[in-house]
Design a protein around this nucleic acid. Structure first.
Length: 206
DNA sequence: ACACGGATACTA
DNA sequence: AGTATCCGTGTC
């Protein structure tokens, strides 16, 4: 039997709601997969940490694409980060996928991670996808996925969660602007997140 | 603690 | 062209 992916309508709501509800869903990518355990919301309007604040190209992307489209960009010159476009609800924005708990294709994911990380600890199960740059490496996501429709049922996208999930909220990670907003959502108690809630790597110094 | 590395958007 | 910044990671 075939499981339906999250439809476009899922992403036609407030970005904070989408970020919250994506936790617990399974991210599937060409045979590899993992449960989403950490997300962050970014708002297109008034959020200084969102790309739309400084990048005309990000604003154009929102104009030209449908909700549920992948927004993938290169950060620090070496890590691809996966966002999902949220559009058509009360506010537009993005959801950054920050960590997943590996479920399928684990050996292949470890293979891909070993290329960049030599120490076995770096690609052990708990560290395999525990960060936005790590999970894109593991799943083989790169710039060619920028603009991809994640609701097309092509074996790439999100599978709805079945059980209710317990969530934790915390501030966003690694940003220098609007760093106080509690727009990071985590699966409560998960050992697969990038930084535990209340952890030390909070935000960059002003 | 530090190096790694490139796209984007500024200044001129 | 040159500069500043950036939603990170692995190893020092």
């Amino acid at each position: 039997m075939r499981i339906e992916a999250l439809p476009h309508s899922f992403f036609e709501r407030d970005p904070l709601v989408c970020a919250r509800e994506l936790v617990g869903c399974e991210l599937v990518w060409n045979g590899c997969a993992g449960i989403v355990v950490e997300t962050e919301a970014y708002l297109a309007c008034g959020d200084e940490a969102c790309h739309t604040f400084m990048r005309p190209s990000a604003r154009a992307f929102i104009e030209q694409h449908s909700p549920g489209t992948a927004y993938v960009y290169l950060n620090y010159g070496m890590y691809w980060l996966l966002n999902v476009l949220v559009k058509g609800g009360s506010e537009d924005g993005f959801v950054l996928i920050r960590a997943i708990e590996p479920t399928r294709g684990i050996e292949l994911m470890q293979q891909r991670r070993q290329v960049r990380a030599k120490a076995p600890m770096s690609y052990s199960l708990h560290a395999l996808c525990s960060g936005p740059g790590k999970l894109t490496q593991a799943l083989g996501i790169d710039g060619s996925d920028h603009g991809r429709d994640l609701c097309a049922g092509s074996g790439i996208g999100f599978v709805p969660n079945t059980k209710p999930v317990k969530l934790t909220t915390d501030v966003r990670i690694g940003i220098s602007k609007a760093a106080h907003l509690p727009w990071r959502f985590l699966l409560r108690g998960s050992q697969f997140v990038s930084v535990q809630p209340g952890g030390k790597k909070r935000s960059k110094q002003p």
